Simulated scan of single mutants.
Amino acid sequence: MTSKSLIILSILGVFTNLPAAKAEESHAIFFNQLKKICGHSYEGTVVASNESDEKWRQSKLIIHAPACTADMTKQIRIPLHVGEDKSRTWIITKSATGLSLKHDHRHKDGTPDAVSMYGGHTTTKGSPTSQDFPVDDFSKALFIKEGLKQSTTNVWTLTLNSKGRLSYRLSRPGREFEVSFDLNKPL
């Protein structure tokens, strides 16, 4: 099966039984699958969390992506709303060696939060349906500077499963957090 065939199947929602892919193919297939959210908004729910996530469990969670544009060939920006809080945006970017995930946090006036643009870069090929983003060196230094040393072992995972759900997961020792968005029901 060619990469083009895999991309077409994945866009149609056929995420299971995909053959093994080279690293650059896995990254590209995943990125192209993720682009299908362009122009839509989706509601999510917390599926795994710690006590500190009460606000997330009680809030309406919405992701949305603007209509696909030429600049989305290399980067997808996904604003995340937690109730009335619209301060977060996930940024997934293609690079020469894989994909990166950054978290852009802003204040209401649009200025960057002290803890912003943190994230990670893929270190493995992942799969056409799931990519891990271990914390990068920039983020480790930022977390230490801001008194968040516990976050220096973060791994974020984005998964597109066979049931048409996008999951965002944060994990580290003593911390598990996951939100799942139903891509079958655009708002």
Rank of each mutant, 00 (worst) to 15 (best):
W56G: 07
I76M: 12
C38S: 06
S41F: 09
I78M: 06
F15A: 10
Q58N: 14
G13S: 11
S59D: 04
K163C: 14
Q75Y: 00
P66Y: 09
E24Q: 00
T69C: 08
T152K: 06
N50L: 06
S87K: 09
I29N: 01
I76G: 09
H40L: 00
I8Q: 01
S171F: 10
G164M: 12
E25N: 01
A20S: 02
I144V: 15
T2I: 05
A70D: 15
V47N: 13
H105Q: 12
L187D: 10
I29A: 02
S95H: 09
L148V: 11
K60L: 12
D85N: 11
R88V: 10
S139R: 08
A141D: 13
S95F: 06
D104C: 05
L6M: 06
L142P: 08
T73F: 08
L160W: 00
K60D: 14
S52L: 09
S130V: 09
L187S: 15
Y118P: 04
T157K: 11
V155F: 11
T111V: 12
V82G: 01
K86G: 11
L158H: 02
S180R: 12
I78D: 03
L158W: 00
K149Q: 14
S116Q: 07
I7W: 02
L101K: 10
P19F: 01
D85L: 03
G164C: 10
L148Y: 10
T2L: 05
H64W: 14
S151C: 13
N154P: 08
S87L: 07
S52F: 13
T2N: 02
G119Q: 14
L18S: 04
I91M: 08
G44N: 09
S59T: 00
A65V: 00
I144H: 09
K55D: 11
V179E: 15
S87A: 10
K35T: 01
H105D: 06
T123E: 05
F15Y: 14
Y118N: 07
P66N: 15
I8W: 00
L61V: 12
G119D: 14
K102I: 08
K22F: 00
T159M: 06
K55L: 10
N17F: 05
K145C: 12
L183W: 03
S162F: 10
S171V: 13
D132T: 05
R106L: 11
C68D: 09
D137L: 04
N50H: 07
P66S: 14
S3G: 03
G110I: 12
I29H: 05
A48W: 00
K94L: 03
I8N: 02
